[in-house]
Design a protein around this nucleic acid. Structure first.
Length: 479
RNA sequence: GGCGCGGUAGCCAAGUGGUAAGGCCGAGCUCUGCAAAAGCUCUAUGCGACGGUUCGAUUCCGUCCCGCGCCUCCA
């Protein structure tokens, strides 16, 4: 069965290109627009990164981990990063480094695989300048009076094909744009000339014939994908908001510069809403990961909640959905524990990625929701099949304990759920509570239930829950 | 105004031209001194409204109502 994904350009499900198995150097190239590092990413941003993480995992299962090259950039110079640095009175690099580190920590706690390459805009100034120079030479770009460089939209006949926006519509609606230096309202900046009052000390030598300054936002992705993945990439992804203008502009720049198709396949994931409206920094209606973890929600529940809607449909985020995810997660963990025990395996075996990938085409694995993932990344469909333990139409499924084990390990891996997070972070049980618990356990063993209940009430009053098992007890901070 | 997406049980959410997956919540049961946890079972004659096509429509077509997104800050 093929791996199909909706293509925003052609507006239909299309099979993803399979690398040529005869040529080990032939890789599936995948570029995902990353975050702008000037503030914490919110969980709406993470929805997109999570969807891309599942996509990456499914691609690895489909084509082999060594056949994928995944690039996700960091935008570390643009209006917002510069504005933040100016506001704090600190160097740009200091601001972007700080938020990059936090982004990485958030990604790790959400169990996202790091991309193979994570290029930065400031690390690729030369490449961007080179592209701009080529575009100027070819007549697709021009120097404005202030020394900035703009892309001439009218020079690219295909402009607007991805977003279905026609040039004349742009001109009608775009009345607020800074037309001061442009030849045409729909033209966009490739290079922005330095402005001492706004830009602090952020400037680089510009393209030949332009003033010093900094690259525009769109050219960075064109330059970085060209450098790390070549002139034509297999798949380019991002949030729907990037369709226009960002991706439209990338296409214009790259195709005019390189003379070839920029991306074979475009994929856009939908927005996360909160209270029925888009979560965004400008609206101030967003949750960050730490907003939620500080309320006691686990990163895995957040991951599950964000994957519980179809990636190409808007998803309304609520705290209720996190409660539901926490409960569902416990159910999955219990299912995993039973499956692991039945197969005589360990949790380490369950998360053994090398082993999972080694068995990636084994027949018993062609079930349990993976087929939903293969069909346009239907994460809620996959979750449904996973819970119902219902084999899909694939025949030859192996229902033995070991087959079940591999099947479950594989879909859990594809969804990137870690059902057994390290417990090192759990709170230490105070000695006094421990002592009360021991006393209660002894009272219970002596069948003095009155004393046992009194002791549990005491433990409870101190903020702890005592849960009995056959062979002992567990103490947990009360929720 | 232009372009696009969606409306499925109390909440969330898949899916299909042939009679509604799953999760949460709730209820019952099993287990347990009692709890908790866990397991099992139950929970939409119904898929925004009205028309049309069809043997048959939640699924296709049309009209309408409601919600959301994009149209140079945005994942």
């Amino acid at each position: 069965m093929a791996l199909r994904l909706f293509d925003s350009m052609q507006r239909e499900l299309r099979e993803l290109r399979r690398p040529d198995s005869a040529k080990p150097e032939d890789l599936f190239t995948f570029y995902n627009c990353g975050p702008t590092v000037y503030a914490p990413a919110h969980i709406g941003n993470f929805r997109t990164f999570l969807v891309n993480d599942v996509l990456r995992r499914v691609l690895e299962l489909e084509f082999g981990a060594d056949r994928i090259k995944h690039v996700r950039n960091l935008t570390d110079v643009d209006d917002r990063t510069i504005a933040q640095a100016q506001k704090e009175g600190r160097p740009l690099a200091e601001i972007t480094r700080k938020w990059t580190e936090i982004f990485h920590l958030d990604c790790a706690s959400l169990n996202c695989l790091p991309p193979h390459v994570e290029p930065t805009a400031t690390g690729h100034i030369r490449e961007q300048v080179n592209m701009i120079e080529v575009l100027m030479e070819k007549g697709n770009a021009y120097r404005a009076p202030d020394g900035s460089v703009y892309f001439k939209v009218s020079s690219f006949a295909d402009y607007g094909r991805l977003s279905r926006i026609k040039e004349r519509e742009l001109k009608v609606t775009n009345t607020l744009a800074d037309a001061d230096h442009k030849d045409d309202l729909s033209d966009f900046a490739l290079w922005k000339a330095y402005k001492p009052t706004e830009d602090g000390d952020v400037k680089w030598t510009g393209p030949c014939g332009a003033e010093p300054g900094r690259p525009g936002w769109h050219i960075e992705c064109s330059a970085m994908s060209k450098k790390h993945l070549g002139d034509t990439i297999d798949l380019h992804t991002g949030g729907v908001d990037l369709l226009f203008p960002h991706h439209e502009n990338e296409i214009a720049q790259s195709q005019c510069c390189n003379g070839t198709t920029f991306a074979r396949h475009w994929y856009h994931s939908e927005h996360l809403l909160v209270n029925g409206t888009t979560m965004s920094k400008s609206k101030g209606n967003f949750f960050t990961l730490s907003d939620l973890t500080s309320k006691g929600y686990s990163p895995m529940a957040i991951r599950l909640a964000l994957l519980s809607g179809h990636p190409r449909k808007q998803l309304n985020f609520t705290l209720d959905s996190l409660h539901a995810a926490e409960s569902a997660l416990r159910k999955l963990q219990s299912l995993a524990d039973r499956t692991i025990a039945a197969a005589g395996k360990t949790t380490a075996d369950f998360y053994n990625t090398a082993e999972i990938l080694r068995h990636r085409s084994a027949p018993e694995l062609a079930s349990r929701g993976l087929s939903s993932l293969r069909e346009d990344l239907n994460t809620p469909g996959a979750l449904g099949e996973l819970f119902s333990e219902r084999a899909t139409s694939d025949s030859g499924r192996d229902d033995s304990p070991i087959g079940e084990f591999r099947s479950l390990a594989r879909i859990i891996h594809a969804l990137g759920l870690n059902l057994h997070p390290a417990t090192a972070a759990t709170a230490e049980v105070p000695a006094s509570i421990k002592q009360l618990a021991e006393q209660r356990w002894a009272a219970k063993a002596a069948r003095d239930f009155k004393a046992a209940d009194a002791l549990r009430a005491e433990i409870s009053a101190a903020g702890w829950s005592m849960l009995d098992r056959k062979d002992g007890f567990t103490l947990e901070p009360k929720k």
